[in-house]
Write a protein that binds this DNA or RNA. Structure first.
Length: 603
RNA sequence: GGGGUGGUAGUUCAGCCUGGUUAGAACGCUGGCCUGUCAAGCCAGAGGUCGCGGGUUCAAGUCCCGUCCACCCCGCCA
């Protein structure tokens, strides 16, 4: 080692020692006579003082220093003189009096500012990612990410889990997300796919008798990107045998408790709150509710029968719903400001936003262009349901159920932010009792909401066996309603409005699996081609099993307070799935394509 | 595929609505002064393909059309 310690590791107890440090010039303040340099390494920052009184040679050389030069300095660690301490630095009481300075490497002037994090365009940050990653907050993010995975590994190891790797070159499964494909040179015309998740393999490992498996593993999905979605992302994937839902939840709750305690020193209460899918949609309009604030959605469909407002009545006639949300204290808004709210609702897919200002409940004071269409007792009941007080604003959306929930769930978040209702902290919630099946309007068939291996809840198993002849299935038929009501042994874990994981108990009985494929319209033949190896494995003594996968990137993003998972990934991709730094994706040699028997057909 | 925001000095932005002399500011950079600063200070200086292409006009950073890139969202994705 050519250094004794890290810059941020120096303690007051070491004052008087002579030390050697290495690092980058973070900041320099050249007073001519005295030169101050903030020296930075991974561990932190320390002030180095160059004075001609200590070393004329070092002081002279220090004039040449520029930002991001890499240097080595030796000198005494001293307490700073009274009144010159810097309370903003952890090492602000200390400084190194440099006797020796060596420039290990110079740096060209920087294309971006390393100290000022927030204001740099993302393009530049990604183009010069190596510089961006020098920024202390990015270093902190990746250090926290490391600690999270370390704690998870330790915890799962202590709980008897084995980390087992699964293939990255695997079989394409057209269900679900689009696959990234890799051509096979040795098998012309055939392709590998990069895994969307290790789902099938981890179930196979259960059949093999490993009982508790986990993996922290890259997954790949060729879909469009979002702030919380990258084409390659990391899952904490686990699977257990001889368990039910409760066991999986317990393991994850213990894991989160431990992770938050050891990494952030935050106490997380367990067990986590639970909501059924139905209740979550009803109260929050979404299956990933942020429970850190109220403003719940309230149903007004029944009350709307008593009004004469045509939009509401039309909605009732077509089987739609009317729900409302409260804008705390927003009766003050001008017409213009309400128009802006309406624009937001429109952008979320609503056809309109009805509003009523609550001026005085006791005095029957309600204000709105539509207030004359509502009897006073209806208005009072509406404000009672919303727990509205004088000075609040009631916002209504009338539409088909899905749109109503969709729009209001977004309005809720928007209002929560605007009214500063979203407190810090971490609110976990399990969403359970998901529907097993989802109707695909376009293809006129049922699809798995989670995946085709998800077990129905025990009470609902006979429902799926009672259905025969799926070709006649039509919306509103009794079989349709029966199948729609089947609940899955599936669960999502939601943190602060983000879905950070999901899993299920799998089907281990061949007869149920066969019936599921029938309902999903997947023929035996098709099933064999797509999942044959798993189905075969299930014939040979498959234990009851289930598991879950956590989105590590999202979890760490929330823990560090970032708003995009790009900030917790060392080398993320842009919205067009490109890496600006390395120039990925790129063209390849004609020779490479030829070896792979591939011809491109450009649009 | 669709909607939105942005692209001007190394960086962050102003200028654009309402076209008109030499495109500004701050930070950074270069040089000078400066022995207790910590966003150091003071003085001087250099630095521009106004994303790219086309059009309108006597005249375009500014108006119009197209296009590329980045970000946010919908679709898509669990």
């Amino acid at each position: 080692m050519i250094r004794d310690k890290g810059c941020g590791e120096l303690k007051e107890s070491e004052v008087g020692k002579k030390i050697t440090l290495c690092g980058w010039i973070f900041r320099r303040r050249d007073h001519g006579g005295l030169i101050f340099v903030d020296l930075r390494d991974r561990s932190g920052i320390i002030q180095v003082v160059f004075s001609p009184d200590v070393s004329r040679k070092a002081h002279e050389l220090a004039h040449e220093l520029r930002n991001e030069y890499v240097i080595s300095v030796s000198g005494d660690l001293r307490k700073r003189p009274d009144g010159t301490e810097n309370p903003n630095l952890p090492t602000g009481n200390l400084e190194v009096y440099a006797e020796r300075l060596e420039v290990l490497n110079k740096s060209a002037p920087l294309p971006l500012n390393i100290e000022d994090a927030g204001d740099i365009s993302e393009t530049l940050r990604l183009r010069y990612r190596y510089l961006d990653l020098r920024r202390p907050d990015m270093q902190r993010n990746l250090i926290i990410r490391h600690r999270v995975t370390k704690v998870i590994r330790d915890y799962l190891d202590e709980n008897g889990f084995l980390e087992i790797e699964t293939p990255v070159l695997t079989k394409s499964t057209p269900e679900g997300a689009r696959d990234y494909l890799v051509p096979s040179r040795l098998n012309p015309g055939l392709f590998y796919a990069l895994p969307q998740s290790p789902q099938l393999f981890k179930q196979i490992l259960m059949v093999s008798g490993f009982e508790k498996y986990f993996q922290i593993v890259k997954c790949f999905r060729d879909e469009d990107l979002r702030a919380d979605r990258q084409p390659e992302f990391t899952q904490v994937d686990l699977e257990m045998s001889f368990v039910d839902k409760e066991n999986i939840m317990e393991i994850i709750e213990g894991m989160m408790k431990r992770v938050f305690k050891e990494v952030l020193d935050e106490d997380i209460n367990t067990p986590f709150e639970r909501l059924s899918f139905q209740e979550s949609i009803e109260r929050f309009g979404t299956d990933k509710p942020d429970l850190r604030f109220g403003l719940e959605l309230k149903d007004m469909t029944d009350l709307s029968e008593k009004c004469t407002f045509r939009v509401f009545l039309e909605t009732l006639k077509t089987g739609g719903r009317i729900k409302a949300i409260k804008g705390k204290g927003l009766a003050e808004l001008s017409r213009r400001e309400i128009d802006l709210l309406t624009d937001e609702a429109l952008s979320f897919g609503a056809k309109g936003l009805a509003w009523i200002k609550v001026k005085s409940i006791s005095g029957g004071g309600f204000e709105s262009p539509i207030v004359r269409f509502f009897p006073e007792d209806v208005l009072k009941e509406m404000s009672r349901r919303l727990e509205a007080e004088d000075g609040d604003l009631m916002l209504f959306v009338a539409d088909e159920e899905k749109v109503v929930n969709d729009v209001l769930s977004r309005m809720r978040i928007e209002l929560g932010k605007r009214l500063n209702l979203i407190k810090g902290g971490y609110r976990f919630v399990w969403i359970e009792d998901f529907p097993l099946l989802e109707w695909n309007k376009d293809e006129n068939r049922f699809e798995s909401m989670h995946h085709p291996f998800t077990s129905p809840i025990d009470e609902d198993i006979e429902k799926i066996f009672s259905v025969i002849g799926l070709t006649h299935l039509r919306p509103q038929s009794s079989d349709f309603r029966l199948l729609s009501s089947v609940r899955a042994k599936a669960y999502d874990i939601v943190l602060n409005g983000y879905e950070i994981g999901g899993g299920s108990i799998r089907i281990h009985r061949r007869d149920i699996q066969r019936k599921m494929f029938e309902i999903l319209g997947i023929s035996e033949e098709e099933a064999r081609i797509k999942f044959g190896f798993l189905l075969e494995a299930l014939e040979y003594g498959a234990p009851p099993h289930g598991g879950i996968a956590l989105g590590l990137d999202r979890l760490v993003m929330i823990m560090v307070g970032a708003t995009s998972i790009r900030d917790v990934i060392a080398f993320p991709k842009t919205q067009k799935a490109a890496c600006i730094m390395s120039g990925t994706p790129s063209q390849v040699d004609a020779k490479q394509l030829k070896e792979l028997h591939i011809k491109t057909d450009m649009p």
